[in-house]
Design a protein around this nucleic acid. Structure first.
Lengths: 230, 230
DNA sequence: CCGAGTTGACTGAATGTTCAGTCTAGGAAT
DNA sequence: ATTCCTAGACTGAACATTCAGTCAACTCGG
């Protein structure tokens, strides 16, 4: 019989190695998904990437489906955590918002799992047919919108932002970011990362009523994240 | 060798039947893709739908890839044509814009190929890995943005709209619509079609400076779409 | 008008490959 | 010696694509 490893992590702590193995495989899966795409991801590829056998992968994740779903969940969680981390490092609401927008728009200094934008496309497509994935996506998206919304509320309370319906704004910005993410992921020459960033920021600044200029190494809003050059 | 049927439609009229067959198959493919999703679309399914054999499908489209690519191209073209058609039926720029937005947001009275929104997800995902599809998407998107842009320019000249950078607006709205399309396609309860429509229209109205209220059967902007069928 | 030859449309039955998922048996830890 | 781990070899099914023709509609020389 199987240990029926629970998806919430801890399982039995007796074997630290087992959990490590699982995590390693999830990460390997993510790498392969990014590189080859969802549809082209074989268990054997993941196994190879993780330096083990296909049989072992199945041993840990009962099915391929479960592996992929877990990989996606992991990716989303990392993404969210990264967002929280970045926001915490910035004091002003406008700065936090800029950080969020930069995260989806500017590809450099990839967040934990590389190529998140690329994965999203597969993610969405899969969510359309796969209930479990759909629910992961829905939750993840919800969480993200709530992050934006509460950020806006905070900014309004501190007087940084105009007062407007924060939910409307969160939903709109979130949609716009998703839309730009597509263009960026697909490398559309007409709408590159920098342009998406600019347009998103202009939208936010305009709606929320704060000043924003391209981060010229001295703007009031701080440069988004670390060093990045056009 | 093959007749090498040109992709721009009319081709040579010598054999009406062959082209009909092709078109029929493309439409069948589209149906299957919508129903089962891209990855789960088998040639046999398409053949069955079209009332023929898998071998015949391959006979017309050398490979499955070609069939799918052509199906996507067809879908996009229909979508675009539908857009043009709808716009032509409305006099004001604001009305046209509303029509466009309604088309992506409101699911009712599906445009020619049903479930376009759903297909987009697969479309994007596939574009990420498949050069040919990528180019189809890029062109299609470009065309769409240009449509919006020239619409805005026209509205500005007639004095309906504020003056602003029409390209910036087109790119932003287009992104927002894509983003909402995802939520709608996936049936996210937090952002349903009506809400997406409202938020998009508010964005447009706000940016372009025209009045807009929910179409109350007598608004200045006409109700989005009406009865239409081939 | 006719029948041998040609060609395009079409099919059912292979073929061959590619994988997800077993199975079995060996190794390591307890 | 029992219980996890692990992997190589297998199984079985799902499919895309090919093959070897059949069929019907034509042409065209006589």
């Amino acid at each position: 019989m199987h240990k029926d490893v629970a998806m919430d992590g801890q399982a039995d702590v007796t074997s630290g190695t087992a959990d490590q193995r699982r995590a390693q495989m999830v990460r390997a899966a993510l790498d392969v998904i990014v590189a080859r795409g969802f549809a082209e991801t074989r268990i054997a590829d993941v196994a190879q990437r993780a330096g083990t056998s296909a049989a072992l992968v199945i041993y840990y994740f009962k099915t391929k489906d479960q592996l992929l779903t877990e990989a996606i969940r992991y990716s989303e969680d990392s993404w969210y955590a990264e967002g929280q981390r970045r926001m915490a490092a910035v004091p002003t609401a406008a700065g936090k918002l800029e950080e969020i927008i930069a995260m989806t728009c500017l590809p450099e200094a990839d967040t934990g799992p590389a190529g998140s934008r690329l994965i999203w496309l597969d993610f969405w497509a899969r969510a359309a047919r796969h209930v479990e994935v759909a629910s992961v996506r829905q939750k993840s998206d919800q969480r993200w919108r709530e992050t934006i919304q509460s950020l806006v509320l905070a900014g309004q309370e501190s007087g940084e932002f105009h007062v407007l319906d924060s939910l409307d704004f969160a939903d709109s910005l979130s949609a716009m970011l998703d839309g730009f993410a597509i263009q960026i992921a697909l490398g559309d020459p007409a709408v590159d990362a920098a342009r998406a960033f600019k347009l998103s920021m202009c939208f936010a600044a305009h709606q929320l009523g704060f000043e924003w200029i391209w981060p010229q190494s001295g703007g009031m809003t701080r440069e988004p994240s670390s060093g990045q050059q056009p």
